[in-house]
């Protein structure tokens, strides 16, 4: 039934010092549709592909605003993300109530990381099956954090997780140096292009299947969907026709 004797639970080390259950949980993240995040010196952007179960059903919720200064994007088990996001909302409110302070993003990230770690060291628990990107602005400026089921969290300049996200990451790595100086609109375009890279050939970004979340200095984190993102989609992919260095091929197939 099992691949080996060491992958039954999260409290057993393999002879190589690995914990298979945790590694399998990371696979659940790769089942989820792709999400990307980027930060500049002034803004933090999240973008996500939403799936729908069938033609007539609604689309998933991929980006969840948590507090007025930040939000998360998820890939993997949505119900696990809901548990974590409820916890984050509660912790964020507590910070505002007791200290009149927007919770620092590093702080909230570490709090969910500690929770996730507990699930990997005790029998009867399972690791969370979801990866998160946490993006927004606190007193130290814009931030982007990645959260993994293992409880590993890292602050990133840009990141993509979920199905076929390697393509998005490759795009992000190639444009890494330009993100810092990007304005709001430019950053959104980069995020959308990165997202597009991860899409299979026969799919494209539409107002129905795309979500964008933006936070910035002096700007509350907000979720944009539907017609609110139509202009960005148009602008982004017109640009690419105009001879942008990558994805020219993909664009041609679209048109």
């Amino acid at each position: 039934m099992f691949r080996n004797n060491y992958d039954n639970d999260s409290v057993t080390f393999s002879p190589q010092g690995r914990i298979f259950q945790v590694e399998y949980a990371s696979e659940a993240v790769k089942q989820g549709s792709v999400v990307v995040g980027i930060v500049s010196k002034t803004h933090a952007v999240l973008a996500a592909i939403k799936r729908n179960a069938e033609e007539l059903s609604s689309y998933q919720k991929k980006i969840i605003p948590i507090d007025s200064h930040y939000g998360i994007a998820l890939a993997g088990l949505a119900s696990d993300a809901r548990v974590l996001s409820n916890f984050m909302k509660q912790q964020s409110l507590a910070s505002r109530l007791t200290y009149d302070r927007a919770i620092p993003l590093s702080e909230i990230t570490l709090r969910i990381a500690d929770r996730a770690q507990t699930n990997t060291q005790q029998y009867g628990k399972r690791p969370y099956g979801v990866g998160l990107l946490i993006a927004g602005v606190d007193s130290k400026g814009p931030h982007l954090f990645e959260f993994q089921p293992s409880g590993v969290t890292q602050e990133m300049v840009a990141c993509g997780i979920g199905a076929r996200s390697q393509m998005a990451r490759t795009y992000l790595e190639r444009h890494l140096d330009s993100f810092g100086g990007c304005g709001r609109e430019e950053l959104i375009k980069h995020a959308l292009r990165a997202l597009k890279e991860s899409l299979s050939q026969d799919k494209e970004l539409t107002v129905d299947n795309t979500s964008v979340g933006i936070g910035g200095i002096g700007e509350n984190f907000a979720l944009y969907e539907g017609q609110d993102i139509a202009e960005w989609l148009d602008a982004t992919f017109e640009n690419r026709e105009g001879g942008d260095d990558e994805g020219g091929d993909a664009m041609e197939t679209d048109s």
Binding site: I19, A113, Q121, G151
Partner: peptide, 11 residues
């Protein structure tokens, strides 16, 4: 070693 275990230790 494992980063999250390190954080557990520290906390």
């Amino acid at each position: 070693g494992l980063l999250p275990d390190g954080r557990h230790f520290v906390s």
